[in-house]
Design a binder for these strands. Structure first.
Lengths: 205, 205
DNA sequence: GTAATCTGACAAGCCGGATTACCACTTGGC
DNA sequence: GCCAAGTGGTAATCCGGCTTGTCAGATTAC
């Protein structure tokens, strides 16, 4: 018999605690570092008891994995939404939009690339597998744009699998440097660089 | 068990223990994972006592950092050696050689890219700084090749800084996927892909 | 108003690994 | 052969964080 406390349902309070824990994870993992962050610190930051933590997550790794998935899913949804609105547009416009939306989404909060490309690397098998899945997802996305370009006659007909993986790596590398550099690299220069690189990679003979 | 230290100098035995510890680190960090590897396991694998471990390294992180530096330095030296022998060659030949030697060196032992691009990421500040230094080193290398190409008239005169960083990321991304995939991606396809991508990136208008 | 129920803070036990103190042993010098 | 110096392995200690048991307090139904 679940009953409401203080006018708020148990599920809602749980959801809020969960959200606060995710926020705390994003903050501490990217400042203190994942390995050095203690569960009690997460709970203090989130204003939650250790008991609550274990109600929501099985471990610190669990929390990290969820964050990683969340960041990728958010970026992916935005990019997909932007592209479905450009169904009939030219390939170059679509590619420009794809990269622009992606870079803008991920750089909006510097903690996102830090968590995605630094803290969530090499933690355990599950997160590595999740990483591979996301790389594949992004690569297939890029691949399908390349095939559109080929169909439109502005790119050769060939397999774009490795090219797509390489481009994902290029984006990842630039963003990882972006978040590590002081003074930071300019976001729009990065977006421009990636756009031109991708166009050159696809339209090359 | 090494008995009888007559004939063998203490420094040499130290050096051999150190080498065995580095080998053990390479093996265990890339199989068990860095975080899950215990110091006693390293010592068992290396046939060395914990006492010896602390004579050589201050911590597990120290050992990892040394391995990371070693792998990069080895690859770098080989690439530089190959290129100094091609001082007067054409730009396309130099670039092809650069990438070929690099990819071949790093993929010779699958544990190398695994350690470099997965296990050594996000461990601590020192290793991250070392990573940034190596990316910078490699990027400057690529940049100078691009400037050669510009001087030869086969590429436009512009800044190649971001392009170089992106290319380093592309190589990193491909090799990270290479070591993670089952069945593995073909090494020479990767080398070809990177070579063409780099040529396209540099010679683009 | 009261009892039943739920919630969250606290803290102590527990566990596992890092670190060092100790001792047995080897070696070369006398 | 015996002793001084140095070496290496083992085992005990120590530490720090994870995890859960407990309890006091808050809240609502009757």
């Amino acid at each position: 018999m679940p009953r409401a406390y203080g006018g708020v349902s148990p599920e809602q309070r749980r959801a809020e605690r969960r959200a606060r824990l995710l926020q705390a994870g994003l903050e501490l993992f990217t400042s203190t570092g994942f390995a050095a962050t203690k569960i009690t610190e997460l709970c203090t930051e989130a204003g939650v008891s250790t008991r609550n933590f274990y109600e929501e997550f099985g471990s610190k790794e669990d929390l990290l994995r969820e964050l990683h998935d969340l960041i990728n899913a958010t970026a992916f949804d935005r990019v997909r939404a932007a592209l479905t609105e450009l169904e009939t547009a030219e390939v170059s416009t679509r590619i420009a939009t794809l990269l622009d939306v992606f870079v803008r989404t991920v750089t909006a909060d510097p903690r996102a690339p830090r968590l995605n490309y630094v803290e969530a690397v090499g933690v355990n098998t599950e997160i590595e597998q999740q990483h591979v899945r996301w790389v594949t997802t992004w690569a297939e996305f890029i691949e399908s744009e390349a095939l559109r370009a080929a169909a439109a006659g502005v790119a050769p007909r060939r397999s774009y699998r490795l090219t797509a993986i390489a481009l994902v790596g290029a984006v990842t590398g630039l963003l990882r440097e972006w978040q590590a550099h002081e003074p930071p690299l300019a976001v729009d220069e990065i977006a421009t660089e990636i756009r031109e690189l991708m166009l050159a990679a696809i339209t090359r003979p």
